Computed example of a mutant assay.
Amino acid sequence: MASSAAAGGQQVRLNDLPAQTLSQLKKQLDEEVSHLTNSFQSLRSAQAKFNECLKSLSAALVPEATSRTILVPLTASLYVPGRLADTDKVLVDVGTGFYVEKDRTKAKVFYEGKIKELGTNLDDLEKIVGGKSDNLRMVEEVLRQKLLAQGGAEGSAAGAQA
């Protein structure tokens, strides 16, 4: 609890830092944890979308689907009826507005790779968030102790003057 890793990999004794510096460090760590948590949620959401694509490849694109009418989205709230002409070829969004035609098997491999990659990134990010959260708790505890000590010292000084 007495030290925490600072930028550059140096060890800093938290007890040696003034309360104002600890407060600034706490604010910075709060912002970092918040940003990393938002990033974690975004990655989790992207992973869920890729999982949904993988499910659609397996469940919706069966040869029997060519005889069924489906709703094709034109916008987020506007659909038109349509029929699938080919259930083996799909267009895969590979990022930044680029689409690549793939057969179902290659699309499945693509999405499985993306899901695995995001899972690895999520695991790494979770460890980073945990470390930052631990650092934040240590800073908060030392700051609380310093503020209590300052409050106690001021109360003693005021009592001695009276």
Results as ranks from 00 to 15, higher is better:
Gly151Asp: 05
Asp124Ile: 07
Leu36Arg: 10
Asp93Asn: 11
Asn135Pro: 01
Gln47Glu: 07
Ala46Asn: 15
Lys108Ile: 06
Ser4Asn: 08
Thr120Trp: 04
Phe40Asp: 06
Lys108Gln: 09
Leu147Lys: 05
Ser77Arg: 13
Gln28His: 09
Leu84Glu: 02
Gly119Cys: 02
Leu143Val: 01
Arg83Thr: 09
Gln145Gly: 00
Gly95Glu: 01
Gly95Leu: 03
Phe110Glu: 07
Thr96Met: 12
Ala65Trp: 05
Lys132Gln: 07
Ile115Tyr: 00
Phe98Leu: 14
Ser42Ile: 11
Ser4Thr: 15
Tyr111Trp: 03
Arg68Glu: 12
Pro63Gln: 02
Lys127Thr: 08
Asn38Gly: 07
Ser133Gln: 11
Gln150Met: 05
Gln11Trp: 09
Ser133Gly: 10
Val142Ile: 14
Leu91Phe: 13
Ala65Asp: 00
Leu17Gln: 09
Thr21Pro: 00
Phe110Asp: 06
Leu25Asp: 00
Gln145His: 05
Leu25His: 01
Leu118Gln: 04
Thr87Val: 15
Lys116Gln: 11
Arg83Gln: 11
Ser133His: 05
Leu61Lys: 01
Ile128Gln: 05
Leu71Lys: 14
Gly9Leu: 03
Leu122Gly: 02
Ala76Phe: 10
Gly151Ser: 08
Lys132Pro: 01
Ala160Met: 12
Gln150Tyr: 01
Asp86His: 02
His35Cys: 04
Ser67Ala: 12
Ile70Ala: 06
Ala7Trp: 15
Glu52Pro: 08
Ile70His: 10
Ile115Ser: 01
Leu29Gln: 09
Arg83Asp: 10
Lys146Asp: 00
Ala153Tyr: 02
Glu64Cys: 06
Leu71Ala: 13
Leu57Thr: 04
Val94Asn: 03
Ala157Leu: 09
Asp16Leu: 09
Asn15Ser: 13
Ile128Pro: 03
Ser23Glu: 14
Gln24Cys: 08
Asp86Gln: 03
Ala2Thr: 10
Thr105Lys: 15
Thr75Ile: 13
Gly97Arg: 01
Ser42Tyr: 06
Ala2Gly: 07
Ser56His: 12
Leu25Asn: 05
Leu57Ala: 02
Leu43Gly: 03
Ala149Asn: 01
Thr87Asp: 10
Gly131His: 07
Pro63Tyr: 03
Leu147Gly: 00
Ser133Tyr: 01
Gly130Cys: 05
Gln10Tyr: 11
Lys55Leu: 09
Gln145Ala: 07
Gly97Trp: 09
Arg44Ala: 09
Leu43Ala: 02
Leu71Phe: 12
Lys127Asp: 10
Ser34Phe: 08
Lys114Arg: 12
Asn51Ser: 15
Glu31Tyr: 15
Leu17Thr: 02
Tyr99Ser: 11
Gly131Pro: 04
Pro18Met: 03
Ser156Val: 06
Asp123Gly: 05
Arg44Ser: 12
Arg13Met: 14
Thr120Val: 07
Ser56Cys: 07
Ala153Glu: 00
Pro63Ser: 05
Val72Arg: 04
Asp93Leu: 05
Ala5Asp: 14
Thr96Asn: 15
Leu14Lys: 02
Leu22Gly: 00
Asn51Cys: 07
Ala6Trp: 14
Lys108Trp: 08
Lys27Glu: 15
Leu78Glu: 13
Ala7Thr: 10
Leu25Arg: 08
Arg68Leu: 14
Glu64Asn: 04
Ala2Asn: 12
Pro18Ser: 09
